[in-house]
Structure formats: C-alpha cells, structure tokens
C-alpha cells in the first residue's frame, strides 16, 4: 500500500537514459524519480553530463536511449505533444536567455499568449503576478540589458513559473552571477521549494547545498546515492 502511494506521488521518472556525443558517452543509463514537492540537486564538475541530463528531460537534447515519464505519461517519443510537456517542465538556464527585444513583463507574457492562447489582459495580470512572486514587479518595464544578472535570472524564473509547471529544471542558475547576486536568486528558489514546487537543480557549486533534500552524487555519468 505504501509503495502504491509512493508511486502515485512520483511526478517525474527517468529511466535508463543514454546519451553520447561522438565517442564520449556522457550519460550511461541514468535512472531516478522525483516525487511531488521534492528538490533534487545534482552536483559535479563541468563536463559530467549534468546539463545534458536536464536537456534530455525536456527533450531539448534527444537521448539515444531510455524513457522519461511525466505524471505517468511518456515524454520521450511524444512527437507533437512535446510542446505540451515542455510547458509542464519550466526550465531556467545558466545564461538566462531572456528575449532581448522584450521588456521583463513581455518576456513573461509572450509564451502565455502564443503558447497557452491567453487573452492579452489575462496574460498581463498573470505575468505581473509571477514577477511580484520573484520580487521583480517594479522592473516590469525594463529591458534585459537594463537588468543585473540576478534580476535577469529572477525574471527568467518568473517566465518559467508563468506556465504553471509541475516541475522546475534549474540548469546552473547561479553560475553566471556575481557572488553578491547569488543570494537573491537562491532566496527565490528556497521560497519555491518551501511552497512545494518540485525542483531539479544542477550545479557545480556545493554552496547551494542549503537546498538539498536528498543529494545525488554524479561522476563520469554514473549516479550513486550519496
């Protein structure tokens, strides 16, 4: 009975993911699952396949082998549905990748309008709501070039949150930031974790261990419980 409830709790299941670039096998059969409200952190030096793993999860990189399941539905080989799954998996990048020609507000809003088909007014309200959640509402009319790294990263978190994702994927969210700006981003992430968001975080900075619930040790593509 307990195992059954545990299984129902599982939001994301990754099974035996393989990925090679040329002769280099980056991921050698990675499997794990993430339960609702859980935060998993992957730590390891550069080049060990942490980012590749995240990109495989939302199929920005297509894995050679293996399956990904979200809420019991297969993400791998989902072809056209992949855009639906990607909405459900918010991704935050190391270099923010904000849309340079749009204000912070429009950055958050655009996918709501173009992907979710929301009305402009509703999308604007939703976008403002998400911006205030990360403390960026007073910067709504700023362009990315006018924001500091920490502010830009908070906007990019808001952008991902606006799609109401079931799980958030953080790809080295603080690696490109000045040390004094890391705090504000970590604060937002901690808030999310406390609010029950399911999160996968990839980093090479052990200082983020404040987010750990159950750490995963990563080396040369082989995962061990640590």
């Amino acid at each position: 009975m307990t195992t059954l409830t545990q299984q129902e709790d599982v939001i994301l299941r990754v099974e035996n993911i393989h990925k090679s670039y040329g002769n280099v096998e980056v991921l050698k059969g990675v499997s794990f699952s993430v339960r609702k409200g859980e935060t998993k952190v992957f730590i390891g030096p550069s080049g060990t396949g942490k980012s590749t793993l995240l990109r495989c999860i939302n199929q920005l990189t297509i894995p050679d082998k293996g399956q990904i399941w979200l809420h019991g539905e297969e993400v791998t080989h989902s072809k056209k549905n992949i855009n639906f799954f990607r909405q459900k998996m918010g991704m935050v990048f190391q270099n923010f990748y904000l849309f340079d020609h749009l204000t912070a507000l429009r950055n958050v809003e655009i996918a709501l309008i173009k992907v979710k088909g929301m009305k402009k007014d509703a999308a604007r309200d939703k976008a403002m709501e998400e911006l205030s959640r990360v403390g960026m509402d007073s910067f709504a009319q700023h362009y990315p070039s006018q924001l500091s790294g920490g502010q830009a990263q908070r906007v990019s978190i808001a952008r991902a949150l606006a799609m109401d994702p079931d799980v958030m994927l953080f790809d080295e969210p603080t690696s490109a930031l000045d040390p004094e700006l890391i705090g504000e981003v970590l604060e937002v992430m901690k808030d999310l974790a406390r609010g029950g968001m399911t999160m996968l975080v990839v980093t090479h900075e052990p200082m983020k261990s404040c987010l750990w619930r159950r750490g995963q040790f990563w080396k040369a593509g082989v995962r061990k419980n640590y």
């Binding site: 939302n58 920005l60 855009n83 639906f84 990607r86 909405q87 998996m89 918010g90 991704m91 990048f93 270099n95 990748y97 904000l98 849309f99 340079d100 996918a111 173009k114 992907v115 990019s156 952008r159 991902a160 799609m163």
Partner: peptide, 19 residues
C-alpha cells in the same frame, strides 16, 4: 548575431521552432 539560447529558451516554454 541574435544572442544564442533564446531559441532554446522559447522552445523550452513550449513554442514550436517556427513560433
């Protein structure tokens, strides 16, 4: 010359490549 990654970020939000 458009800063790389924005296409990927847009796709990660659920946009098709064309969108």
């Amino acid at each position: 010359s458009v800063k790389g990654g924005q296409l990927i970020a847009a796709q990660a939000l659920g946009m098709t490549r064309a969108q």
